[in-house]
Design a protein around this nucleic acid. Sequence first.
DNA 1: ATGAAAGCGCTAACAT
DNA 2: ATGTTAGCGCTTTCAT
Lengths: 351, 351
Amino acid sequence: MRRAGGRRHTLRDIAAALNLSVNTVSRALSGKDGIGEKTRALVRAEAERVGYVPNSMARSLVTGSAMTFGLVITNPSNPFYAQLISSIELRAREHDYSLLLTVTDESAENEARAAESLLRSSVSGAIVVPVQAGADPWQRLGAVGVPTVLLNRDLPDLGYRFVGTDNELGGYRATAHAIACGARSIVVLEEDLPITTIADRIAGYRRAMTEAGLSMPRGSVMRVPTRRHDQAALPWQPQQAYQVARRMLRRARLPDAVVAGNDYFALGLYRALAEHGLKVPDDLMVIGFGDHPFSAFLSPSLTTVRLPAEEVGEIAADLLLEEIAGGRSARPLKQLIAPTLVERDSTARKR
Amino acid sequence: MRRAGGRRHTLRDIAAALNLSVNTVSRALSGKDGIGEKTRALVRAEAERVGYVPNSMARSLVTGSAMTFGLVITNPSNPFYAQLISSIELRAREHDYSLLLTVTDESAENEARAAESLLRSSVSGAIVVPVQAGADPWQRLGAVGVPTVLLNRDLPDLGYRFVGTDNELGGYRATAHAIACGARSIVVLEEDLPITTIADRIAGYRRAMTEAGLSMPRGSVMRVPTRRHDQAALPWQPQQAYQVARRMLRRARLPDAVVAGNDYFALGLYRALAEHGLKVPDDLMVIGFGDHPFSAFLSPSLTTVRLPAEEVGEIAADLLLEEIAGGRSARPLKQLIAPTLVERDSTARKR
DNA sequence: ATGAAAGCGCTAACAT
DNA sequence: ATGTTAGCGCTTTCAT
């Protein structure tokens, strides 16, 4: 029966079998010097034979480091975060760290628990996408000496390292592109969460409009209600965007372009427009955000802003590794990676 | 400076401050009885005051359980697995377990390392989507008494508990639906990975065809090459499916329907068909697999097979919890959850 | 080159 | 109700 569970072998077992001290065995296995070559070979052979696996809790208890990254994310179903998980996990693994994952689902309470849990587990460091409902939980982590890097959303009060996407630039580029394509009146479709990423995108939109001398009448920024309290679901509902888009289409004067906060909103928009008999891009241009994998294959294919997910994840991991190593890195404290505009057919207006 | 890292307080600190023994403090905090109410209050107050956080490594070392689930997944960017991560993490958290996540990216070598890593970390149990390149790594886990449940892909030799989607039924339902809609000749577009989920779907397709007395000439099952070796990327490329679909469209006789192995393949198919001037569903019906969040919003909206991701995740976690608790559960050893067909416009043929 | 002793922070068993 | 002792499996220091 598998339940029989052959007890795991320990250093002591090997030591006993070989008539050596635990200490000798430990050093033989951990590759330290000051050990006879034949002894080492013997120890290794015996360890191999019994299938010895070191107990990392015991080791961590004495060394003080659990060789673990804590990763705190709001929602793995968001493709951007899914990619982040992958790239951070890979980086961690390459450096022999394990990954402890916690999902907050945009809840401040979950976040507080997550921080406490990381503390208990003595993680070597943490990478955190904060809910942005206060900095306390993460302040605490830093205070007890756990290196922490903030991902995608900053908490400036803490003075921690931060890597994220330059959302302001993303919003700017999307809007500027629409303007370059001839749009004069542009509407933004955004989530209704109180987080900086969204505020930044809107700021970028405003900057582009202002620079072009275009006006932003009331109703230029439309909010799509986002149900964020079903963990394990996509954060964005095309259906919600569809509803909001329909409301927009009842207006007397339609915009020339709509800049969506994410590609799923663009999807809802597409449907509303199609039902209304409007052609993209000729009647109205659409620009998405995120370059989700389906966007290139919509018809028309969606112009969108591609996010540097892998790069952001790698940098976050590298920053953390540096902080753990204790070396002050040459990098700037705050790093914003520029997203790139991917021009496709939804803005390719035939003149 | 945050690096100052105030040393963490331990039971001993609290004991010393209160002139009690470490043991008393331990029991006061862990809610055991046999302790004076005022002492307990005192201890709690002091713990609160200094911000005491228990060291779970130390605890685990003595109790033998790390209160951790190991979750081993092939690719978090696959939306099905993203949902699985969410639902398992939630279940784990509800029961005070942490989640140690490892990504294998379909590599047998990564898988072997992952298993070893779980062993080192003394996880309380593991939930594993195996690469299906051999059962050894997971055999080992069970052998040392770590409860392990297999997710989505079984390894029957091990006799472990297993929960997954009934892919055979999914393939069957998709195909049967196409037949019910009038298709006589049906092509399958599938990944080229050697895993059971895919083989099962194809088996379901064959069953439906056979039952209906339809023939499956050579070329009925087309393989889409899947580049699986970029971690942090979507496992399926619409572009690849598009290429394969174009090849199919060069045939003398076109099928009435195409059943795709996932919705992203359907996307590539849509494009190939559109370029070829074919209308979905009138010229050709399309059925997807996975019900990805965009599928309802394609035009035409995509008929597809919805996977019970959350349910599968929850069951996996529950099975693991039961095994950890040691109770033989009343559940069957192997559990296959039925997926459901979602009928939409891509098979709604007007007659 | 090897061993003995001590201790990481906690809980469990056995006192008192 | 509280304290004492022992020990989880490992690494670190200090002997030999």
